[in-house]
């Protein structure tokens, strides 16, 4: 009778261990998906080729061949930067001066959109953001009056600037210089 009971107990623990493994792997995979995708986006071969570590990059307009990020909008002109506040704050400035929609959105390493500023929120003022580390960043020089300090939830993350373009070819002369006012560099 004792052997019978031990045998059942052994099988119970075996099945429990396997079931726990399934659940833990499932949760770990779901948790890891956005982080892995963001890592590939920020440090993958395409990011490396565009040199966008603490530096703004200006990809060409979206076409059917654009396959870096899912659901690219053909009506937007994108500008990008991978920020890293490990060594100190990153300063983001821009002055698009466009009447149509534009926005600068910041994403954490887990893909959360933690900050966004757009044409309506900024008004006519130039954008001046000082992005600092969640654990605090040493600021070697004073932050200018009017600049906005934003705490990044992760040390690295992604900046995406969107500029609306109904017809890129006809608007190119206006929107290309406007988006290239974006600067993203260590402060």
């Amino acid at each position: 009778m004792k052997d019978f009971t031990d045998q059942h107990r052994l099988w119970f623990y075996r099945v429990l261990t396997l079931a726990t493994t399934v659940v833990l792997v499932h949760i770990a995979a779901v948790w890891a998906v956005p982080r892995v995708i963001m890592q590939i986006l920020m440090h993958g071969p395409i990011a490396q080729s565009m040199s966008m570590q603490n530096q703004a990059a200006f990809p060409p307009p979206v076409t059917a061949q654009s396959r870096t990020v899912v659901m690219p909008s053909p009506d937007l002109l994108y500008s990008v930067c991978v920020f890293d506040v490990t060594a100190g704050p990153v300063r983001i400035t821009a002055q698009p001066n466009l009447k149509s929609y534009w926005s600068i959105a910041l994403y954490a390493a887990n893909s959360d959109n933690f900050f966004v500023i757009n044409d309506q929120k900024s008004g006519d003022k130039p954008v001046d953001i000082w992005l600092v580390s969640p654990s605090g960043s040493p600021v070697e020089r004073p932050i200018p009056t009017g600049a906005q300090v934003v705490v990044a939830p992760s040390k690295t993350g992604f900046l995406l600037m969107r500029v609306l373009t109904g017809n890129y070819e006809s608007e190119k002369a206006v929107i290309e210089p406007a988006r290239r006012t974006l600067v993203c560099k260590p402060a």
């Binding site: 949760i27 948790w31 998906v33 956005p34 990020v69 959360d112 959109n113 933690f114 939830p153």
Partner: peptide, 26 residues
Amino acid sequence: AGSPDADIYTRATIALNALLALGRDE
């Protein structure tokens, strides 16, 4: 979508199907 309040399933689904989405106020 895009919100820091998203649970892990929503965050992962958005990352797979609509990466870099903005919050609904935007």
